[in-house]
Nucleic acid binder design. Sequence first.
DNA 1: AAAACCCCTGACAACGTTGTCACCGAGGGC
DNA 2: GCCCTCGGTGACAACGTTGTCAGGGGTTTT
Lengths: 338, 338
Amino acid sequence: MRDVADASGVSVKTVSRVVNGEPGVKPEVRDRVSAAAARLDYRHNLAASNLRRNAARTGVIGVLVQDVANSFSASLLRALEDAMRPHQMLLLAASLDETTAREQYIVENLISRRVDGLVLVPASARQDYLAPEIRRNFPIVFADRAPRGIDTDSVAIDHRLGGRMAVAHLLAHGHRRIAVLTDTETIATARDRRAGARDAFAAHGVEVPGDLVRSGVGSEELAGAAVNALRELPDPPTAIFSGRNTISKGVIRALTQRGERDSVAVVGFDDFPMSDVLGLSVIRQDVAQLGAAVGERLLARLSGDQSPPRHDLLSPQLIMRGSGEIPPSEISPPEPSA
Amino acid sequence: MRDVADASGVSVKTVSRVVNGEPGVKPEVRDRVSAAAARLDYRHNLAASNLRRNAARTGVIGVLVQDVANSFSASLLRALEDAMRPHQMLLLAASLDETTAREQYIVENLISRRVDGLVLVPASARQDYLAPEIRRNFPIVFADRAPRGIDTDSVAIDHRLGGRMAVAHLLAHGHRRIAVLTDTETIATARDRRAGARDAFAAHGVEVPGDLVRSGVGSEELAGAAVNALRELPDPPTAIFSGRNTISKGVIRALTQRGERDSVAVVGFDDFPMSDVLGLSVIRQDVAQLGAAVGERLLARLSGDQSPPRHDLLSPQLIMRGSGEIPPSEISPPEPSA
DNA sequence: AAAACCCCTGACAACGTTGTCACCGAGGGC
DNA sequence: GCCCTCGGTGACAACGTTGTCAGGGGTTTT
């Protein structure tokens, strides 16, 4: 900036005025400065600028998700970007891979960078470490999972309701031997979805088929293995509730290989690309809606909203595409009469 | 920082030393300062720090892709993140939506933020506006598309080869009426893929079926519409080369609705999640490999590599899953003998 | 005992920018 | 002709941090 000033024979302050488009500079001087800036390839330094304009915003928000390559996270990211774009804000995105340590490291790093806010799909079980930030009213919005150990805004899908809807749907179609495949116990959403499944059994007065409930199904491979194991049981499940999109993929792949796509009912949680073509019935969470709601909450906080934290729950939706409407297969032994 | 210094009775410089873990501070003092910092919720300001340590890195690289929600972009992002993670670098991600204006705006913004480098999947036709950055050796790596108007590193899939492979495969299975659906003319990759398709026709001495070549197919909906139109022709195509994953989705959806999934051959460009279950034959570009190569190039530049720009081409791979191996349907009128 | 050394610490300037204030000269009102 | 106003400009300090250098006190060397 000093160089530009020297080259155009004015003070640095005047260059600053030109660069920021402030009024009160003679057009002639303005042109001279602009020309010099262009000639010298001058690039405005936003970091220094923000440092000086003390209370100003950096125009960046941090987004921590599980894995930016996962369609859920990617859609969330995109919805947030769309929400932030009109406000000229950019996104610093990071994948956590369900790693608590990385979550804390990234959060700390982002705060040092003075991001204006955070969107967090937490990997950690508790987020007490954020207490100081909450105390000073730093905007943090939790997405898809509620905060624990602190209180701050969150927007999430009602996973429990979704799990309940899925299993209730299968029960309504006459299934009793329903397998429930969910991710690791430590993940709150997985717990909620399984709890919802249990709710549905209870509401229908059906005993939970304990031997068919599997948690810790954390990958496509594990899901496929689980399907194979379950279908080899003496009294195999006639329907499967798969608690996550990666699990659904493994389930469908395994069923396809076994030639059982048309005989075993499946309802998945999480829609994913092409599941319509696959005819997979799912509990759909509207990720775009989720992202938009999260963005809205964050923007409200950024513009000074001091109201108490809100915890919004969005209802998922059952999408019937065939796989969830398959009746119990006749191969399954008839239920003994009471 | 001054507050922490006052609270612990030392100078700001000593606080700086403690914060940065520099040696040469008495353990007792170090503890006192750390305690004060914790008590006052002190947060280190990386922006100011970087400003002072003049030539230092910000530890952020900008990544501009088409759409972070698209599986190609999302996977690229993830591969880059993995490449950068060991170097403690974070990613500022932005979606361009094939918009030239947004590309320039974001690039300018990121440069003002002093990102250490850029990864660009350009939306613009030419990138002359980057000339000053190239001149000062600012690290920019193009991904998936080569730069035009400037010369800098790029890593891309050989789209032309891929297009050729796809159509050659269909020709080898006896098809002659092969539809070629590609995205807008202005997108370089779409042009390359179509050119590859023409190469294949030429190499087989087959005349290009002009009435079946459609460009400007920019969405799933348009792809579906194109399929319907083409299949209603008096002499419909017996095979389809779909030049992009979104197009493939539209094609499959339309064929499914028409009940023609098993009678019309399809080879798609771009693998996407679940296409294996759909039995779709595709030209796969290894996005993870692409992202890793881009990351590697960028890291090399960041560590001072001054060699001339390189333009690497990665070969795509044909994955046969059934849809591309369907023979020409008999419904199609027999070719008139010569 | 003087000299040399080391450990620890702090004063100061500087990074690139902008807010504050003061200044200069031209024009307008009395 | 005097005072006031106002448009245009620049000097200076400050944002939060760290590199440089100097200094104080203790210990070791000669």
